[in-house]
Amino acid sequence: MDGAVNASSRSVVFDLARQELRDLNKFLHGDLRGVGSVTVENPDGANSIAVGINAPVMVEVNGHAGYYVAGMNQGGTVVVHGNAGPGCAENMMSGRVEVTGFASGGAGASAHGGLLVIRGDAGLRCGISLKGGDIVVGGDVGSFSGFMAQAGRMVVCGSAGEGLGDSIYEAVIYVRGTVTALGSDARLEPMGEDDLRVVGKLLADAGMSHLPSEFKRIASAKTLYHWNADANLTY
């Protein structure tokens, strides 16, 4: 901190080697006026770090996080300087979550909003049930990513595994590398002007510098939106 430290930019440190996770989260749910940033030291893979944030607070996690880091984030900015376990930023509503390393399964699961940036690879089911959030992955995503994704965008700078976008609704997935296999009802579609703009914007927001034109668009073929339409025979 520079000399301008004052009441409007107080910096708070939680050392999880000495302090309780419960106290960290409780602090984050309290009155955060005057708190500029919160630093979490020695996270040591603890689960549920910085969950349920409901304010535009900045949280830096110096090390690896376990399950559900920044779960249900609403308005906060959480940076994990390390890897994140399953379900990072699950059900995020708004704000920004960034993982500098790798993220495990279910990253950004069911996120309604906000931006999740993963600089490394993401595991299985990245963006499952996505509901409007945006996810940018610097590396690859595992199988079944974008499963039943309803809304929002996923930008994968590396490659995607099996069953990508299975039963996808209105969400759109952009992949730069290869796709091992698309899931049911997912299809490749041409990149339009809007797609190039969206990918360019999300890459810029994430601080990544690929060309939008290198990406493919995957979206729903919408064949599963309704039950069997041929049901017209009668006795």
């Binding site: 996770l21 419960r22 989260n25 409780k26 749910h29 689960n47 549920s48 969950v51 349920g52 376990g66 399950y67 559900y68 779960g71 249900m72 399953p86 379900g87």
Partner: peptide
């Protein structure tokens, strides 16, 4: 085992 962790997350979000 995951459910146990999920329940803890919800407890953390709701301050137990």
């Amino acid at each position: 085992d995951d459910l146990a962790i999920k329940i803890k997350e919800l407890r953390e979000i709701t301050d137990w």
